[in-house]
Design a protein around this nucleic acid. Structure first.
Length: 353
DNA sequence: AATAGACGCAACCGCAGGTGC
DNA sequence: GGCACCTGCGGTTGCGTCTAT
């Protein structure tokens, strides 16, 4: 940690008090000042916050302190196994996009997750990969798929295949298709999957009555990438990879809760972005990068049509308009609350402690 | 008990993107 | 368009604490 009494010699252009800005650890008095100011005035320009709160800190430092430590909605303490699981899964999808991972973990900061990953998970991953001898198949990051049947085998390699009921296919309402199926992308995605399997074991997956691979769970809490405020009372969600014969895309379960990522045999893919917890279709579109990142990761897992993923436009299916008009707000959602219903979630193949 | 090394984590740094003038 | 400034992000640093010897 930094020395608490250190004074930076470098001033900030908008700085106060003769450019003598404190650096290093925050004192309790400084915390009080910042906390009181934020609670009374709310967040504004951080340079103003630093100035008006009487802090000899740069705005950047104030922002960091608030976000990472003082924010009232922060969760303290060690990561729960559920959170850990979720972080691992999200990281396998999102990579080092800590802020996006943090956005899916209520009460946790990107810095916290980053530290957790770098200190704990990364180490464990390293240990596990060094102690295990990966099979040629699983270490091959550029598997070739010859036909649909073998493609299916290949795509589901490493997955626990569990029979499950038919999905609520009549609730399907949207399809998003992939644009990038480059070898590089597939390679990195496959590597991510291999990492996951090395670390956590096979991914749980399920087939529906079509023989379609329907479900890959990301975390025992069944998180998906949508805001559970959509239906806070039944937030048992999953991310799914479906391999259907049809043009099926985005699934909603009986409760109307979005249930995941679906990839059809036509290689149509939809992954819900967290940022699409947005109120307009326009803002939804601006999140295409996030979309693509996740979607690209999925390609490495299931790429069932000779490594070719069709690229089509976002198509309007039933209900998509309602989806965009839904009042969705990012905010407080309690992980424990979300966990309540998980054990009853039909696609789950594990028990919550 | 003393010491060294490993670990955890708060905080800094540099960069990129957005915005307003 | 150029510039200054703000914000947010990911990578990195370095100090306090823990643990093994």
């Amino acid at each position: 940690m930094r020395k608490p009494e250190q004074i930076s010699s470098a001033g900030e252009k908008n700085s106060n008090n003769n450019n003598k800005l404190r650096k290093g650890l925050w004192s309790p008095e400084e915390d009080d000042k910042l906390m009181n100011y934020m609670l009374n005035n709310g967040q504004g320009c951080w340079s103003d916050v630093a100035r008006n709160a009487g802090l000899q800190r740069c705005g950047k430092s104030c922002r960091l302190r608030w976000i990472n430590y003082l924010r009232p909605d922060l969760k303290r303490g060690a990561f729960s196994p559920q959170e850990e699981e979720l972080i691992i899964h999200l990281h396998s999808l999102l990579g080092n996009r800590w802020s996006q991972i943090a956005a899916r973990l209520p009460g946790r900061t990107d810095n916290e997750i980053k530290n957790f990953w770098n200190s704990t998970v990364k180490k464990r991953l390293k240990n596990m990969t060094s102690s295990s001898t990966p099979s040629p198949n699983t270490s091959d990051s550029s598997f070739e798929l010859k036909d649909n049947s073998s493609n299916m085998q290949e795509a589901t390699r490493g997955l626990n295949i569990i029979p499950c009921r038919q999905l609520e296919t009549n609730a399907i309402f949207s399809t998003y298709n992939l644009h990038d199926s480059s070898p590089t992308s597939i390679q990195s995605n496959t590597a991510a999957l291999n990492n996951h399997m090395n670390l956590r074991g096979p991914l749980p997956a399920m087939f529906d009555h079509h023989g379609a691979l329907n479900n890959i769970m990301f975390g025992p809490n069944g998180y998906n990438n949508l805001n559970p405020n959509i239906n806070p009372s039944s937030s048992c969600m999953s991310q799914e990879i479906g391999v259907h014969g049809g043009d099926h895309g985005l699934f909603f379960g009986e409760s109307g809760v979005f249930s995941g990522v679906n990839i059809s045999a036509e290689a149509e893919i939809f992954v819900p972005p967290l940022e699409s917890i947005s109120t307009t279709e326009e803002s939804y579109k601006t999140d295409q990068n996030s979309y693509n990142n996740i979607v690209n990761n999925i390609t490495g897992i299931v790429n069932c049509n000779n490594n070719m993923i069709k690229a089509e436009n976002l198509q309007g299916h039933h209900g998509v308009e309602n989806f965009f008009q839904t009042e969705l707000t990012a905010g407080e959602w309690d992980l424990d609350d979300l966990m309540k219903d998980v054990s009853s979630f039909p696609f789950l193949d594990f028990q919550i402690e």
